[in-house]
């Protein structure tokens, strides 16, 4: 069996993580191509249903990337995002999806290096965890 290549969806805040990802690119920092970036106006815009749909449609891991604590452009969107991610964890466990597949991270626009590092580490972690069990079940279904 060939090596499992996880699909990672990263919801990136326009004011920080999205710019940081951009900077990582211009700094020629490598990070895995597994990470698909979705730009959002604020991490606080990310609702539980967005994360759920990402997982349902095949993501193996989801990052929600917002500004550093206290630096949210909309005051506390990043705090709310963290609350939502935290609240979603037990629900994911109920479904039978490991909570660590969904993670909240914080950074500033200038942290290109941090973005690349997080993207790499998270991809590795999900690679070790294996495919999203819902997706795996569905592909068994398709195969049969």
């Amino acid at each position: 069996m060939e090596q499992f290549e996880p699909t990672i969806v990263a919801f990136c805040c326009h004011y920080c993580a999205y710019t940081a990802a951009d900077m990582a690119g211009s700094m020629r920092l490598e990070y895995p191509p597994n990470v698909k970036i979705i730009r959002v106006p604020c991490s606080g815009r990310v609702d539980a249903i967005h994360i759920m749909k990402a997982l349902e449609k095949g993501a193996d891991g989801v990052l929600v990337a917002g500004c550093l604590e206290g630096d949210c452009h909309f005051k506390n969107g990043n705090v709310k995002a963290l609350q939502r991610v935290t609240a979603l964890h037990p629900f994911l466990e109920e479904i039978g999806i490991e909570a660590e597949r969904v993670q909240m991270v914080n950074m500033s626009a200038g942290m290109g290096g941090r973005f690349a590092q997080i993207a790499t580490e998270f991809t590795e972690k999900i690679r070790e965890l294996g495919p999203n069990p819902a997706k795996a079940g569905a592909s068994r279904l398709a195969a049969s």
């Binding site: 609702d47 539980a48 249903i49 759920m52 749909k53 997982l55 349902e56 629900f91 109920e94 479904i95 039978g96 999806i97 069990p133 819902a134 997706k135 795996a136 079940g137 569905a138 068994r140 279904l141 049969s144």
Partner: peptide, 21 residues
Amino acid sequence: RKEVALLASALQMASMKKGRT
């Protein structure tokens, strides 16, 4: 509406895990 969407997604994934949709 929100909780309906979340539960729908959760039920779907829980079923997918069991190899059904």
